[in-house]
Design a binder for these strands. Structure first.
Length: 464
RNA sequence: GGCGGCGUAGCCAAGUGGCUAAGGCAGUGGUCUGCAAAACCAUUAUUCAGCGGUUCGAAUCCGCUCGCCGCCUCCA
């Protein structure tokens, strides 16, 4: 709210209440939305790594103009239509390595709360009824605009909205409950109230669900930049008029994802969905790393080339962890513990400073650069390797980009590797090469090192 | 028109008053290697969009200019 970095302090020691604005269930998740998921996940994971217990909720908007129109166009029942997308989101979230939230409330299941909120707002004089719709009277909420810094008197009215669609007293007012249309009535998309048949607006949905699950004041409310105005302003206006208390102690907004410098949106015809990229052979892990690697308040300019760069960077990290995990231990190294603590310190210092992932990653790369030569000459003993893996695991609980699942050798693969090694010692290159080809067919690449071969799967696996 | 953000190497990106301007990708040179792949090491910005100012000292603060982006009341 202050637009500055502040030291984070939750209301209750050791616990954090966390709400992130979820998607509208009418289209598959595009990368911009994925960034929101991943950033929210990063915040939650980091808080947990810092010892907080996080109570996190993300909503699904399954009752609004888009979903109603989308269902209409698809010739489907609203519920069938939205459930399909909700399932798809949940699967995308999983693909991106996002930890499950405490709950995923749906707007359609909280309409009674929204009606109740509207009643209270009308009673308190913050809202009014007009032609069967309920509107919030912005003039009654003087703090309006504080989050986004908009000055209502200087706004260009009707810039993006056709005001003729509404019957508000003041065009700056916003809708809480909207009178159901004839088409909606026919399909049963309406809720009976004292004011007639209505359905809720987007803004009141978030208000009802955020405070409904997490209380009057949430510790952290997160979302993306473009939702700041008007959506979050409206959410604040609704909730704070009701309770007189701040809706959230901290607001964190992630920046946009751009394509060729433009916002990824249907108007710009440049939408790339997660599933598009998966179909092109990229993995959730690669996409997660791309979305994570830039500090959340900076825009990311998306391109395939960039995703390919990410792939290379990850390959290097994988190479390092496989060597660490798969090569036999050697002599102990005197300074490696100091390198690990330096990395750990730098990582957490960077992340403490508003999740500076770029700087945090630099700490990891610097560490790898130091340890690689040591690994090259087999100068780490078992305990030191275990120690490094343990610390990388701590970091991986936050970033979830390393592959630290050990070095499991499937018997037949192991046998092929042994066969090849034996043949190599005997300088039987033909047998050695055919073993390598066979391994390649099974998706295994062999990497010869001075300390023996290591192997890895060429096709990425999505395990923990 | 109003509000906000951004501009650092070929590309991505950290740094927001003072040691040699992090780190990654790509490039170049080298090491290793039966071949190959991969890896490893070294190297890559006298300069931070431009101009002017403040200061002993500016990428960092101030002013102006240029360029790009976002939001402006139910696209999310």
């Amino acid at each position: 709210m202050s637009k500055k970095k502040e030291v984070f302090l939750p209301q209750r020691e050791g616990e954090v209440t966390f709400y992130s604005c979820g998607p509208t269930a009418y289209a598959p998740a595009n990368l911009s939305l994925c960034r929101r998921f991943v950033v929210a996940d990063l915040i939650v994971r980091y808080l947990e790594a810092r010892g907080y217990r996080v109570n996190s909720y993300m909503n699904f908007t399954d009752l609004d103009d888009n979903t109603i129109n989308g269902a209409e166009e698809a010739g489907m029942e609203l519920k069938t239509f939205t459930e399909r997308y909700i399932d798809s989101f949940l699967s995308d979230i999983h693909t991106l390595g996002v930890r499950d939230a405490t709950g995923y409330p749906k707007a359609s299941e909280h309409v009674q709360d929204m009606i109740e909120i509207s009643h209270q707002l009308v009673h308190k004089g913050y809202a009014y009824e007009k032609h069967g719709s309920i509107y919030f009277d912005i003039s009654k909420f003087p703090r309006y605009g504080r989050l986004s810094g908009v000055d209502l008197s200087k706004i260009q009215l009707g810039k993006t909205v056709d005001l003729d669609d509404y019957e508000k007293d003041n065009p700056r007012d916003f809708t809480l409950l909207k009178r159901s249309t004839l088409a909606e009535l026919k399909k049963g998309i309406f809720y009976e109230t004292d004011w007639g048949s209505v359905r809720p607006s987007w803004h009141i949905e978030c208000s009802a669900m955020s405070t409904g699950y997490l209380g009057e004041t949430i510790d952290i409310h997160t979302s993306s930049r473009d939702l700041m105005f008007p959506h979050h302003e409206n959410e604040i206006a609704i909730s704070e008029s009701l309770t007189g208390k701040p809706l959230a102690r901290y607001w964190l907004h992630s920046e946009l994802l751009l394509v060729d410098g433009k916002k990824m949106s249907s108007e710009n015809h440049n939408v790339v969905t997660l599933k598009d990229l998966l179909a092109r052979g990229f993995t959730g892990r690669e996409i997660r790393f791309l979305l994570l690697s830039v500090q959340y308040r900076k825009p990311i300019n998306f391109s395939i080339k960039r995703l390919e760069n990410v792939r290379t960077a990850l390959r290097r990290l994988d190479e390092f962890t496989s060597k660490l995990l798969c090569l036999p231990p050697g002599r102990p190294h005197p300074e490696v513990t100091a390198y690990v603590s330096a990395m750990e310190d730098q990582f957490f210092t960077a992340m403490d400073d508003d999740l500076n992932v770029s700087l945090a990653m630099a700490a990891i790369y610097t560490f790898i650069k130091k340890v690689n030569p040591i690994l090259q000459v087999n100068h780490l003993d078992r305990d030191q390797k275990d120690y490094i893996v343990e610390k990388l695991n701590v970091i991986n609980q936050v970033l979830k980009i390393f592959k630290l699942q050990g070095c499991p050798l499937e018997p037949e693969i192991d046998a092929l590797i042994q066969l090849r090694e034996k043949a190599r010692v005997e300088k039987d290159w033909q047998t050695a090469d055919s073993a390598r080809d066979e391994l390649a067919e099974r998706g295994i690449a062999v990497i010869d090192t001075a300390n023996g071969p290591i192997w890895k799967r060429v096709a990425e696996t999505e395990d923990e």
